[in-house]
Structure formats: structure tokens, C-alpha cells
Design a protein around this nucleic acid. Structure first.
Lengths: 133, 133
DNA sequence: ATACTTGCAAATGATTTGCCAGTGT
DNA sequence: ACACTGGCAAATCATTTGCAAGTAT
């Protein structure tokens, strides 16, 4: 982080601590709220500014799993691809390896190097598909 | 439309005309602007209200192809699934049949009945992948 | 006649920007 | 010292809601 000419401040550290403390992607507001009291709160505008900076450095990414606010997560080993149910809105996070065959097929058919880390695959989950009929 | 107990008004007709006149999904604002003068303009709030009503009746759908506003399109025969390039933001619209194998593989692996009509498949298109190196 | 609709204004939610005081290096 | 940051307020963008006046049936 310092290696990018970036300074280390309390607010900055808190953003990263919140992201690493959470086990799912979280919103800027959750970070500013200190994860409901588990960490000190900080200013929402600064959180957004820091998230943007950290994202440009490649330390953070965000995704959109539905119609709510953007959700942020740290980059690195824990990378996940998402499936979200249209009906019950349940989120399934899978390791990229599990998605390899799907990505390969998309590449073969369309020439796209796809990833489902930003936008999820939307669809009916098995449970809701059964319930629909 | 009338069959759902819905009244036919000028504003309502304009929303549908705009959607059918466009050959790609368009934003509520483009509709309210009368497609840059090609149709009469109308009130943005009413456009949103009508889009919501029409969507509940299943006559209209919306999608999110990137970070801009939601984009609306009429339902029916012209249904398309989308791929969007992360780098150049080009949008490819493909007929559902072309995506059948991908959807089948996702179903087999994850039990999801996926569709890429609301959120697109994001990835690097062939051209940008080559350029990135 | 009556309930559904519109248009305008104001509210809301998410995110960004301006500015000046504070602080890391 | 100096440029980089934080906090607070205000601006912006997309969308929703309240309400009085207008209109389809």
C-alpha cells in the first residue's frame, strides 16, 4: 500500500480491517458504521474515496449482487464467483475453479474471457424452480 | 394491456412506442426525452411509474448492462441475452438459443436456471483480450 | 361519476465533489 | 514544510413518493 505512494491513516486502515473482518462483500455504509459497532465508525464520503483508491490499486473490488448498493471485498486468494437466485435472492459464492468449465464454454462460443465476480449469474435456484410451477 | 384493467393514456402509449422504436434497451430518461425529439417528451416520474406497471404486467423488462441507469425493453420474441466487455464496454446481444449450451452447463453444475437478460455476462472481448497482453 | 393517471415538486438512496483544517512522512 | 487526507456540507444521479388537478371508461 505504501509502495504505491499511499499514506497510512486510521480511516484507511479501518476500511481494510472491515473488509477483511467480513466474510461476504459489504457496503460502504456498513464500513462507515464500523460493522454495526464492531469497529469505530468513520465518514461515509471518506470510505467511498478510500474504496475507490484501493480499488484502483487492485487491493479491493466491488460487485453488484442485486438492486442494493455496491458491495466491496478485498482481492486475493479468497476470490469468488457468484450465483444469485431471482426469486429468493440467495447468494451462492463458488471458487473460480468450480466455474472453469462454464468460462471455458463461453470462451469457445463467444470469445469472451468471462467472470462472475462483478455481476453474478442470475437465475432460479433449484429450490425456487421446484416451487414455481 | 386493457385486459389487465389498465387504462390507455397518451403517456402510456408513448412509453411503449419508444420501447418498440428503439432497437436496444433504453433508459427512462431517453423515453421521457422522446428519444431525442423523435417522439413527444413526457414526465420522467410518470415514465418510471408506467415502466413499473408495464413490467409487473410482463410487457416490459429492464436490465443493467453497466454502471449507468437501468435500461428497459419490451418483452416478447426479440428477447436477447447480453455479453459486455469489461474494457471497451461493447455490448453483444445474442438470441437465447445461442446461449442454450451455456445455460445447460450451469444447470448441470449448479442447479440454476440461469439467464443473462438482466445482468450480462461480463468479460474481456476477444479484441480487448488481445490488446491487454 | 369515479377511480385511475398525470405532472410537478419534494423526498429518498447511493455516490461524488468542494473545501478547509488536520496529519503522515 | 508539504502534499496527501479526513470530515462535514452540499451537489449530483437515479428513482420513488405525495398530492392536487385531469381524464379514460
Amino acid at each position: 500500500m505504501r509502495s504505491h505512494g499511499m499514506r497510512i491513516s486510521a480511516a484507511r486502515r479501518l476500511v481494510l480491517e472491515a473488509l477483511y473482518a467480513a466474510d461476504t462483500p459489504i457496503s460502504a455504509e456498513q464500513i462507515a458504521d464500523g460493522l454495526s459497532g464492531r469497529l469505530p465508525r468513520s465518514d461515509l464520503a471518506s470510505v467511498y474515496r478510500n474504496l475507490e483508491t484501493l480499488e484502483q490499486l487492485g487491493l479491493v473490488r466491488h460487485c453488484h449482487l442485486g438492486h442494493g448498493p455496491g458491495l466491496y471485498k478485498p482481492t486475493g486468494a479468497r476470490e469468488r464467483e457468484y450465483l444469485v437466485c431471482d426469486s429468493c435472492h440467495a447468494v451462492s459464492a463458488v471458487a473460480p475453479a468450480e466455474m472453469a468449465a462454464v468460462r471455458a464454454l463461453i470462451f469457445e462460443r463467444f470469445g469472451y474471457e468471462a467472470s462472475f465476480t462483478h455481476f453474478p449469474i442470475l437465475g432460479l435456484c433449484a429450490h425456487c424452480a421446484r416451487a414455481e410451477t
